[in-house]
Design a protein around this nucleic acid. Structure first.
Length: 881
RNA sequence: GGGCGAUUAGCUCAGCCGGUAGAGCAUCUCGUUUACACCGAGAGGGUCGGCGGUUCGAAUCCGUCAUCGCCCA
């Protein structure tokens, strides 16, 4: 016997362990079933489960569990990535507690420490994913620093280098002066800031008292200026183009050049050019062959390229010092407030410096072409489709991808340098030595590049490296490309686009057919959750309070395409109530001997009641499946919820009660078996969303299950189970009962009172239906007798119209005639309103001429129905007098 | 500045190919009838952001404006 309420805490861990140990999460490479593959976006090894994870992994699990039940060979490939900078920072912070830095340890010992850290602290998120019910193929779990994946990284790097798609270059990169590494454009956060614009006067050489005024938001960089640009069409400066100005403080002569980059409308129209410290200036400098003077060191302090009294100053100290000096020199023209954006490192939180260094780059532009084409041709499809625009926008304007990082935790770049700086890129040191030997005709000492690769470089290979590439494995042939990638929009550039580039280049095909982009989870007020705001809701807390299924159902039900999710505890509570409702419905079935029967044939049921629920069940399973396949998760959840609660519990089980308590044993047997069958199907179609409670009930309700629910087949969609006549009949019955209940409530009839009811003008169909369902009507509407009459009693009755018939409830003692009159009059008015609208529509020549015939017919029919109802209501009104 | 999204009941949101505006929560009334008060029955509540257009017909398609949010520069 089931407990009175469902207690999630008691069963979840046990159920999960049973699933995992039984191996049902695993794919079956040798099976004949069509594969269904989802590559799990690998969370950071440093990560712990937050609400965004809970959403994305719930949706992935819904898909995987659904397609597994549909008979596909489902592979959900799990794993984590090594999160280079983040992980290194964590371990360095731990080291700092003992007063050490990584440099005290040295590279090798430090990397060992990171591995150690991973072994002890790295498995958090995998445990939490299990808590969430994620049915991933855990024995296949991979880590981006695994031997196999590292081999893939090396091979890709070497091959792309040989193809000229990876190259070393001296360019401006985003330099993080705290972490001492380059980072990619995407790791830079542009923060709006109330800055200032300083206007400096630079004296023109050979023209005493003549100055050119330049504006700058970063005065300290002027020490590295190597030119001044003006717009070629700017008359104010035309004569100065080609002349020289003297850079104050430094006393360096620098040229005035004409370049479109100078905007005559902005500031003074003249702009100082610091090619080594600004991305735009870098381009201008290139065009005009200006010198590049790097004035900053790796800590963003001024270096030896500036006058002695500025050397060693921090950039912000230097800024004040430059302004002071310029003012003292009388060369500070003015200062204006200037709203601007300032780049910050998303990991370090410090201001990023454009800095001139040697780095490795990927020719992203070339690699982007195939993915762009794939999306254009629909071989990869974004859902919702508008995300393709974001993708195109970025891919068509893509910049070289800086992949080298000056840290220690990651894949070390397989490049070796000879004594003269010649580069040998090979998969192993031996091969590099061999190449060097061939190059120098001699054995030379090589030095390996110190840098490691951007973590996203290895993540980009995830769809095939996890399947064994570069080996030609069975898995690779079978599970690549994946069916869908499920992720948030924030990662389209970082990861989705890069997987597509690498997938195309190395596998010659898209890495996945669909990309489903889901929303962000926000707090109940729509604010982004953040630790600093203190509005973070921990999914594990919700799981502890309401159970995993309630959380999963909430996230699924709220995952409408194109809209962010405002998470609130009350919603989770509501869906917890739903799990309890399901539990209690199952308990009711159990109490009434509704046991699933292997020989049950839903097509063979005879009663209208059972044919109706069988048809509805089948239609519901079809709708839920279609919704999941279309990534309409909210719709899947809603359809399943409404069927379970509002159809099965509210009506079917209520209808079943009189049958169970009645005399007809054949009807009882059929209804018991049908209830059990329907409940089984409800468990099945809810299982992808709420795996725990459904599996628990599945197990509890029968001793002879051939499979656990997770491995049970999705309900068959059988056309022969449709029953439109039964559905119409039951709809009528529900309508009749609802109408009577409504009148009773409105007339303040005591809920316990059993009333006689008379039905006037019932046609043959209604009479037959009434005969069939007399007991049901009597029970559910609390009546004691239902009689067909030709003549209605006059006053002292409440009346309600159901289709062609008028239902009369004699209430001589209790009725408030005035209230009844008002109620009927209000109903008449309501019908009249509709009638007017429809009549107008049907009087419209254009409508009659142009609307489809069936629409016109439908409207005519509706009008006739409304008029008939209205007339009956009027008659009822007249009877009251 | 460019792009994307949102605007529908008190709140949170569905509404697909244009054809009778829906759900959950909240509110109000009634109720403990042997699954469930984490419940049941009933009720009220909407100029679908504004304006214009297309159409026989617009929440839905188009244009425009407003407000809010996000991304990019």
């Amino acid at each position: 016997m089931l407990d009175k309420t469902y207690n999630a805490q008691d069963i979840e861990e046990r159920r999960y362990r049973a699933w995992e140990e039984s191996g049902v999460f695993g794919c079956a490479p040798d099976s004949n079933a069509a594969p269904y593959t989802i590559m799990m976006p690998p969370p950071n090894v440093t990560g712990s489960l937050h609400m965004g994870h809970a959403l994305t992994f719930t949706l992935q699990d819904v898909l995987i569990r659904y397609f597994r039940m549909k008979g596909r060979d489902a592979l959900w490939q799990p794993g984590t990535d090594h999160a280079g900078i983040a992980t290194q920072m964590v371990v360095e912070r731990n080291l700092a507690d003992t007063g050490q830095t990584r440099h005290d340890l040295g590279r090798e010992a430090f990397v060992d420490k990171v591995w150690e850290w991973r072994a002890h602290s790295g498995g958090t998120i995998q445990r939490q994913l299990r808590r969430l019910g994620a049915s991933a193929d855990w024995p296949r779990e991979r880590f981006t620093m695994d031997d196999g994946l590292s081999r893939a990284v090396t091979k890709v790097f070497v091959q792309l280098h040989k193809e000229g798609l990876i190259y070393r270059d001296k360019r401006l990169v985003n330099w993080d002066p705290k972490l001492h590494t380059a980072i990619s454009d995407l790791e830079v956060e542009q923060r709006p800031t109330d800055g200032q614009m300083w206007y400096f006067r630079y004296p023109v050489q050979g023209a005493p008292d003549r100055f050119i005024v330049v504006g700058t938001t970063r005065p300290e960089t002027m020490l590295g200026d190597t030119g001044v640009a003006v717009h070629p069409d700017d008359d104010r400066y035309r004569d100065l183009v080609g002349k020289t100005v003297i850079l104050p403080i430094v006393d360096r002569p620098i040229p005035v050049v004409a370049d479109d980059y100078a905007d005559p409308e902005k500031g003074s129209g003249a702009v100082k050019i610091t090619p080594a410290h600004d991305f735009n200036d870098f381009e201008v400098g290139r065009r005009h062959d200006l010198a590049m003077i790097n004035v900053l060191d790796r800590d963003a302090r001024l270096n030896e390229a500036v006058p002695a009294d500025f050397q060693g100053l921090d950039r912000f100290v230097a800024r004040d010092r430059v302004i002071e000096r310029m003012e003292a020199l009388g060369l500070l023209e003015k200062v204006e407030p200037n709203p601007m954006t300032v780049p910050y490192g998303d990991r370090s939180g410090v201001v990023i410096e454009p800095w001139l260094t040697d780095q490795w780059f990927v020719d992203a532009k070339t690699l982007a072409q195939a993915p762009i084409q794939a999306v254009e041709e629909g071989r990869t499809r974004f859902v919702p489709a508008h995300w393709a625009n974001t993708f195109f926008e970025w891919m068509r304007n893509i910049q070289p991808w800086c992949i080298s990082r000056q840290i220690w935790w990651g894949h070390r770049i397989p490049a070796w340098y000879g004594p003269d700086g010649a580069i040998f890129v090979e998969e192993t040191e031996e091969e590099a030595q061999a190449a060097a030997h061939a190059h120098y005709n001699d054995a030379v000492a090589l030095r390996r590049d110190d840098d490691v690769l951007d973590t996203w470089f290895s993540s980009a290979l995830w769809p095939f490296s996890t399947l064994g590439w570069p080996d030609d494995t069975q898995e690779l042939a079978r599970y690549y490309p994946g069916d869908v990638l499920v992720t948030g929009f924030d990662i389209i550039f970082f990861w989705v686009a890069r997987m597509m580039m690498m997938g195309h280049h190395f596998m010659g095909d898209v890495p996945f057919r669909d990309v489903y982009i889901h929303a962000l989870v926000r707090d109940a007020k729509g604010q982004k959750m953040s630790k600093s705001k203190g509005n973070v809701i921990d999914p594990l807390d919700l799981i502890a309070t309401y159970g995993t299924d309630a959380l999963r159902f909430t996230l699924t039900a709220m995952a409408a395409q194109g809209r962010d999710i405002k998470m609130s505890e009350s919603r989770v509570q509501g869906y917890r109530n739903f799990t309890t409702k399901l539990w209690n419905a199952a308990r009711f079935c159990e109490m009434n001997g509704c046991i699933p029967r292997a020989d049950y044939d839903p097509a063979a049921v005879t009663s209208t009641l059972n044919r109706w629920i069988v048809a509805r069940t089948t239609a519901t399973a079809r709708a839920v499946g279609a919704a999941i396949e279309a990534y309409r998760f909210n719709e899947a959840a809603q359809v399943a919820y409404q069927f379970t609660w509002n159809t099965f519990c509210d009506w079917y089980l209520e209808f079943a009660k009189p049958v169970f308590n009645g005399e007809d044993t054949a009807a009882q047997a059929e209804t018991r078996a049908t209830a059990a069958w329907v409940l089984d199907r409800i468990l099945t179609l809810l299982h992808p969303i709420m795996p725990y409670v459904t599996e628990e009930l599945w197990d509890a309700l029968s001793d002879s299950r051939p499979h656990p629910l997770i491995a049970a087949p999705w309900p068959e969609d059988r056309a022969d189970l449709a029953a439109p006549a039964a559905e119409a009949e039951m709809d009528w019955l529900v309508g009749l009962i609802t109408a009577i209940r409504s009148v009773r409530a409105e007339m303040n009839v005591p809920p316990g009172a059993r009333l006689p009811v008379q039905i006037k003008d019932a046609n043959a169909t209604t009479q037959a239906r009434l005969e069939t369902h007399r007991a049901l009507v009597a029970t559910l509407a609390r009546l004691d007798a239902v009689t067909l009459v030709d003549e209605a009693p006059t006053s002292g009755a409440a009346q309600v119209v159901v289709d062609e018939a008028t239902v009369i409830l004699p209430l001589a003692d209790v009725i408030d005639l005035e209230a009844e009159r008002k109620r009927l009059a209000r109903d008449v008015a309501k019908q009249d309103g509709e009638i007017t609208k429809l009549a107008k529509k049907l009087a419209n020549e254009g409508f009659l001429a142009k609307a489809p015939a069936e629409v016109v017919a439908e409207n005519r029919e509706r009008l006739a129905d409304l008029e008939a109802t209205r007339d009956r209501l009027k008659e009822a009104l007249a009877r009251i007098g």
